[in-house]
């Protein structure tokens, strides 16, 4: 509790306490924890002196902010037309198979969350996905296996 309170204050110190700081602060919280909790929203509201309902309204509008816990690695696979045409479905099936989850779910070890998303602006190299901020393109069922493995290894090495 005190730790989170402290970090929200930190973020308000960094971004300022005007209303324009709201999105940057929420983005920082989400980046750090992959969730924006009720408690965070109340704390942000207090720091910026706005209503918690307002913070909630903003936090829930955007697809890159969430009030539910996501895994350490958030996979966003593009489901828009060009990626569809170039083999997004077999890639999705392979991701579902190796992670044993469906879109919208998180692996029980908390490592991966799988999501489908709209055009990532990589259409000429589709199928494409983001893992956290990193784009991966020209995906095949084989290449996603390697990509997931490399993130698994990265997680283990911490």
């Amino acid at each position: 509790m005190t730790r989170i309170q402290y970090s929200v204050t930190d973020m308000a110190n960094k971004h300022g306490r005007s209303r324009e700081a709201l999105l940057p602060i929420l983005q920082d919280i989400y980046q750090a924890k992959h969730v924006i909790s009720d408690e965070d929203m109340v704390n942000v509201a207090r720091e910026l002196d706005i209503s918690a309902a307002h913070v909630y309204g903003t936090a829930t509008f955007y697809s890159f902010l969430e009030t539910q816990q996501s895994g350490k690695y958030i996979i966003r696979l593009c489901k828009t037309i060009t990626c569809m045409m170039h083999g997004k479905n077999p890639v999705l099936q392979e991701l579902e198979r190796i992670l044993k989850i469906k879109p919208g779910q998180t692996t029980p070890d908390g490592l991966f969350t799988l999501k489908e998303t709209n055009c990532l602006g990589q259409c000429h190299k589709g199928p494409a996905m983001l893992v956290n901020d990193n784009p991966h393109t020209q995906l095949t069922p084989e290449s996603v296996r390697e990509i997931i493995d490399s993130y698994r290894r990265e997680a283990l090495s911490y």
Partner: peptide, 11 residues
């Protein structure tokens, strides 16, 4: 913000 499907030039 370049979100229109099929657009990637601004990137």
């Amino acid at each position: 913000d370049e979100g229109e499907p099929g657009t990637f030039k601004d990137r």
